[in-house]
Design a protein around this nucleic acid. Structure first.
Lengths: 198, 198
DNA sequence: GATAACACGTACGCTGATGTTCGAGTACTG
DNA sequence: CAGTACTCGAACATCAGCGTACGTGTTATC
């Protein structure tokens, strides 16, 4: 999964410059996902590039984070757009969960980095699209009686996010393996959304 | 809920000194729970005390965080020890959830502050006691058939923690009110732990 | 192969936080 | 009421990260 398109950030630049920019973004993703407080220095080093070179391509830390977030959001949208969310709501939810898990685990703590480097409205705006997807699917499932209706929709969305991030943390802690995570999350979320029998 | 006992931190000190120490710890709790990266300055100001005075009582930021964590753990233990966890596992779990919710919401992000100011083993050790309580109860409920057994116990514990923290964040975000939170969490967790019908 | 674009290291100034020191004032304690 | 424990603010040293400037190489590109 190479850094495919970075807007007009690369047009007209030299080949090695493009390669370095890609390496920087790639390194920033993996560094920020692990620790949202990494220094620019470490990101540059992880990209195999001098700190000054990095500043040649990105005006500031905020600018870099912005590009990274944008890139992550684009990847996310692409992956989610490819999903079929029709048919049985529970099966559709399972598919959405599996893909979201990959993305959450990969981009991990990037949200936190975004929160403290970007204006709040930009963060909210980046969140809104994926959130809407969950909302749509949950609403449909509630109509069909597949999901419980006795709690706020927004809470259920937040719940799913919390479980995804919790699972990511659990994997990093070594509590569960990356292999068993998807099935575990799927069963857990479906269990939490199943209407109570009584 | 005054800061009751702070070890031998206060013995032999003057009355106003004791009062200030208590105010500092109290302020540190509420500040760190909101933002784990607050400066010492802000904590001192929130306590109505000069920064220098704070350093007169606590050697360093780490020392302060250490005392705060210790104090929080003590409060936690006290509150949880007072609970009756016998009888119907689901009812007992509901009680444990309600109390844990209060504590989680109050101490919030303090864990994060601890993680980056204290040695890792001290953090782990502080976590172990409450975790064991969840484990014990869940194990008993699994034997009784009250909770599902088809996922690792540790995952279920992590899940509960994730839900509690997620709910706290949701309240801070204004998504749900503090009043509706306990019932919501209770229903959600019980739903997630209920054995699947098929 | 000439040239412009790029990478690199070093060094510098800036900021914000931490922790310390000092001198002087204030208030608890016996 | 005397002495001492404590508080306070200001000032200082330190450190780490950010962002910039400069001079010197390298290397893609035409």
């Amino acid at each position: 999964m190479p850094v495919s398109e970075l807007g007009e950030k690369t047009t007209g630049k030299r080949a090695d410059a493009r390669k370095n920019i890609a390496a920087i973004v790639e390194a920033a993703i993996s560094c920020l996902a692990r620790d949202p407080d990494v220094s620019i220095n470490e990101i540059a080093k992880a990209a195999g590039v001098g700190r000054v070179t990095l500043y040649g391509h990105f005006e500031s830390r905020a600018a870099l984070v912005g590009v990274v977030v944008e890139h992550a959001m684009q990847q996310t949208d692409e992956a989610l757009d490819a999903l079929d969310l029709e048919g049985d709501p529970r099966a559709a939810l399972a598919r959405l969960i599996d893909t979201s898990w990959q993305l959450t685990h990969r981009y991990g703590a990037l949200v936190i980095a975004a929160e403290q480097a970007l204006p709040p409205d930009q963060v909210r705006e980046a969140h809104s699209k994926p959130i809407a997807r969950w909302q749509r699917l949950l609403r449909r499932g509630r109509r069909d009686g597949a999901f419980r209706k006795d709690m706020p929709l927004d809470w259920q969305v937040s719940l799913i996010q919390a479980i995804l991030h919790g699972a990511s943390a659990a994997v990093h802690r070594g509590e569960i393996t990356p292999e068993q995570a998807p099935a575990l999350i799927r069963d857990t979320v479906l269990g939490a959304l199943t209407p109570p029998s009584d």
